[in-house]
């Protein structure tokens, strides 16, 4: 994979620690899979250490709502742990509705996974899983880290033409990346 700025873009931001101009770079990758499987990955290169990035990523309410459709995330049980049910309020075209999932995996400091399923059942309404992982940049482990978000799911709207499906998923991913990039810039500048 090569950095594809055309797909998602990059923006300059000022890093106060180093007093120099740094760049948050992002890219999106579409993995070809047999229909109806969907697999997308988004990667952001953030000019902060892994630990500082984890502070943001591990805050589920804030991180998971930095998404085009997620309005609110409710943990159904406290304290949150693997297996905790999540209610994710989605907003689309002025309508809001809940989807439900679980915290599937939690590796302190390096990532976690959540599922995002329809209220009608786990085989309806684009069931998908978010895998979120953080790793330090190989070249500058103290200054840079990589945030990787992988979405694996099953496209269930069989009536939607392939072209429209692809456009929709890419459009959503680009939007998601843009929101994340802005948030990261606002936080770490």
């Amino acid at each position: 994979m090569s950095w594809s700025l055309a797909l998602s873009g990059s923006s300059r931001m000022k890093n106060n620690d180093c007093a120099s101009w740094r760049v948050v770079r992002s890219r999106m990758d579409w993995v070809k899979q047999a229909w109806p499987s969907v697999r997308l990955s988004m990667e952001l290169e953030v000019p902060v250490s892994k630990e500082r990035l984890w502070e943001f990523v591990s805050d589920l309410r804030s991180f998971l709502t930095t998404d085009p459709y997620h309005r609110r995330v409710l943990a159904m049980r406290r304290p949150i742990g693997v297996g905790t049910h999540l209610a994710i309020e989605h907003g689309l075209l002025g309508f809001s509705f809940f989807r439900f999932g679980r915290l599937l995996r939690w590796q302190e400091g390096s990532g976690y996974s959540i599922s995002d399923l329809s209220a009608r059942g786990c085989r309806q309404g684009f069931p998908h899983v978010f895998n979120i992982s953080i790793e330090p940049d190989a070249g500058f482990p103290r200054d840079r880290s990589k945030l990787r978000i992988e979405v694996k799911g099953r496209w269930t709207a069989g009536m939607v033409p392939t072209v429209l499906r692809r456009w929709w998923l890419k459009f959503t991913c680009r939007w998601h990346l843009r929101l994340l990039r802005r948030k990261l810039e606002a936080m770490y500048t």
Binding site: M76, T84, H85, A87
Partner: peptide, 18 residues
Amino acid sequence: GDNCPHCGLQYNPEDEQT
């Protein structure tokens, strides 16, 4: 917390949001 007897979704009786 508790679970819904029908669908199994967790909820917390003390948290009105659940």
